[in-house]
Design a protein around this nucleic acid. Sequence first.
RNA 1: GUGACUAUAGCUCAGUUGGUUAGAGCAUCGGUUUGUGGUACCGAGGGUCGUGGGUUCGAGUCCCAUUAGUCACCCCA
Length: 451
Amino acid sequence: MGTINYSLSGMRDFNFLEVRKRNYIINNLTKLFELYGFSPLETPSMEKRSVLFGKYGDEGDKLIYQVLKSGNFLSKINDINTQDYKELSNFISDKALRYDLTIPFARYVVQNSQDITFPFKRYQIQKVWRADRPQKGRYREFTQCDVDVIGSSSLWSECDLISIYSDFFNIIGLKNISLNINNRKILEGIFDSLDIKTDFTSFCISIDKIDKAGKEYFYDFLDQKKCSKVQSKLIAKLFELKLSNSDKLQYIKSNFINEKVNSGVEELLFILDKTKSCKIDISIDFSLARGIDYYTGSIFEVISKDKSIGSLGGGGRYDGLTKMFGKDLGSGVGISFGLERIYMLLDEFNLFPKSINKSTDVFFVNLGEKEACISQKFVNILREKGISSELFPDCVKLKKQMSYSNKKNSKYTAMIGEDELNTGKINLRNMTTGDQELLTIDELIKKIKNE
RNA sequence: GUGACUAUAGCUCAGUUGGUUAGAGCAUCGGUUUGUGGUACCGAGGGUCGUGGGUUCGAGUCCCAUUAGUCACCCCA
């Protein structure tokens, strides 16, 4: 029935194959994170409302799922007369589902700072929720995989994170990946150098839009904000430079001279110099701004050049994040991997290993009580040897059991009937070729171990 | 939050300018085969056409409302 749809829009079930594929990605990430010296962390799905709000910008706040207070929350708000839903939600909700992993991480670090040795390196793979309208590659419940270093402003951290991106996409075999990099200091420097009537955030958002809306949009924006034509031209040119990384930096150095721009450029130079051996394409993109408010230095975004499904990951450096929770524990930098988008690409290019689809190695059919007893003995022996094995629970038609085994994608089906009971052998059928042979249990183990 | 499009069997979809009992493929179940799956052949079950209203002698088909889904925008992984 078309009407019966039990699950919430934008929130999904995962069947066995999907879970295995997702785990494949997660396992590879976890291995890498550990290899680079990061430790795992998990935080609750919900945070206090005050922890989350005001951290992601106005647009971000709107997308936070809020949870109602329990009990009769209306009884205490008699004296409230507001028509403003934002104000009202403050009274009836005191907690919310996490929107990302970085803010809960910052909260955790401040709360536990006495037990943490800095710089603190953690990775976190958990679900986050956004009350966005779902569309392709975008869900209301999705998994983020974050790695962050907090308590150090060294650019070596940036280099390590870039190296993780590079290693990961190399390991899982995704080609044509580009890591775009920029620095908020450069954007701030440019912004300062302009005589323009707007705030920095709107400026960033308009830059970010050039890609989609075109440069005309950006010209209009600058014009509206009373930016001079000379400056407009200079800056628009900056965002469409088709130059090498070093030429781009040269251009910006000679056209926008101030301290902020300079220090941003210096940072980029350091990072580019130290990541030369990375296998990923690193390209400076001055139009990369990112909407999240808290970034202050380096910003990253990973995209696929083959498919436009949004970014595969992103991140950046943030200076004041722990300050928002009452303690300044130093600068931090982190990146995130978008599990569902990486999944989509791997699926599309058939890059998941074939072994993901296999299940039981040896599937025993059930042909009677005596037969089941001896089959179960063999099943136990195989399991001890680390060979996955199972016995069909019911003695039903063989055809049915074979069909079940086939659908489960078993490698072999083992049959023990009257004949095999007498000879003590196992009738082993290869489910790919259909070949059958009579083996003792020892021969069977040897055969499978040798594959 | 804004806009566009879609809704028929478990799934993917046909269904003519409105006209008998709404079809196919896949899937499921049974049989050809009581010890052989995946390939073959035969058969069966399964639908209040998303929901509610309207126009009409007559609506899956036209109109209105509603709900859900998809895609795009905003923003983002």
